[in-house]
């Protein structure tokens, strides 16, 4: 495994940023200041960051309702995201999208998505753009075990395979689709589903950045080389409820606490890189401090930012009227 130091530092920073961003949202949401729904990505950071560590701004991703982590991993700035979640005019979507619709097409971030299974068809289209425009890009659909049962997802696997698209389907399997366990709701296996469409299947431990990095690297290289789509099945765990306010009464006592204690991707990353001297603790501590400050500033700025003006209501329904 040879990951450049700079990639390691960047990836750690991204994971730490996601963690702090989400933990902070958990606290802030409870104060009642944040409108709407928020779905947190805590515990899953290594997946989004491990996959996106292979992507450039010219590659495309589509995300889910649980999209903050993918946004940060793809390079969307936390100030704009925080302001968006607070419904401010300085938000990345000018306060008109909110948590579930954060997007930045200039960074190849095709949007979080409020519709389960909304992303995979869009990613077929993005992959088609890469293919027709011959820009060398790949398109990655993140979706959950819940969305893996959507017809749109299964149709997209077929279409991507039929059209031999540079598309990667990343199933983030956190064990629950809302409150229902994937063990109940998903028939067969993801592996057999991929095989059913003639798509190469990869799987990995989503709490281990290095495993995700390596596995996603293979899948993305396959797609980028013009060999068609691939599926990456990432096993991980969700630390918070489906949405903020979900008391997770469907999960056994202690399940999450155990995950936090034993499967924290940040802890595992730190242990591994320091153990084999890839990075030293001090640099990681420095990142931790810097991120803490960045999130603090993002919240302060978001709270102070102006609300959208009334005229924004009517703007941007169309490009031309």
């Amino acid at each position: 495994m040879q990951i450049p130091r700079e990639v390691l530092l960047r990836s750690y920073r991204a994971m730490r940023t996601i963690r702090d961003f989400e933990e902070r949202l958990h606290v802030e949401f409870a104060t009642g200041e944040i409108p709407g729904f928020v779905h947190l990505y805590c515990g899953e950071e290594a997946s989004g960051v491990g996959v996106c560590s292979h992507l450039k701004d010219t590659d495309t991703i589509a995300s889910t309702h649980r999209g903050h982590g993918h946004c940060i991993a793809k390079g969307v700035g936390v100030d704009g995201m925080m302001a968006e979640i607070y419904g401010r005019s300085t938000g990345v979507c000018r306060g008109k999208g909110g948590s579930m619709h954060i997007a930045d097409l200039s960074l190849g971030m095709l949007g979080a998505n409020g519709i389960v299974g909304g992303g995979p068809p869009l990613i077929c289209g993005a992959a088609l753009s890469h293919k027709v425009l011959k820009d060398g890009g790949v398109a990655v659909a993140f979706y959950g075990d819940g969305a893996s049962n959507e017809g749109t997802t299964l149709e997209s696997l077929n279409l991507a395979s039929v059209w031999n698209l540079p598309a990667v389907f990343v199933v983030e399997d956190n064990g629950y689709g809302e409150a229902t366990a994937s063990s109940y709701a998903c028939a067969g296996t993801q592996k057999d589903r991929a095989a059913g469409f003639g798509i190469p299947y990869f799987e990995c431990d989503g709490t281990d950045f290095f495993a995700v990095h390596e596995t996603a690297g293979e899948a993305i290289a396959h797609a980028r080389a013009g060999k068609g789509p691939a599926m990456v099945h990432v096993h991980l765990s969700r630390w918070y409820g489906h949405f903020e306010g979900d008391a997770m009464t469907y999960r056994a006592n202690g399940e999450v606490a155990k995950e936090r204690a034993e499967q924290d991707c940040l802890k595992k990353f730190r242990e591994k890189v320091t153990e084999i001297s890839l990075l030293d603790s001090a640099s990681l501590d420095e990142i931790d401090a810097s991120v803490r400050d960045e999130i603090e500033q993002a919240v302060i700025k978001a709270k102070a930012a102006p609300l959208p003006e009334p005229e924004a209501l009517m703007q941007d329904v169309y490009v031309s009227y």
């Binding site: 095709l110 995979p120 068809p121 398109a139 749109t152 077929n158 279409l159």
Partner: peptide, 20 residues
């Protein structure tokens, strides 16, 4: 396309948002 409207109409939307 395959007879698979959700995938290709969605793909058309995705392609439109990304340069085609």
């Amino acid at each position: 396309t395959p007879i698979s409207e959700a995938s290709y109409i969605g793909a058309a939307a995705g392609a439109a948002a990304t340069g085609l």
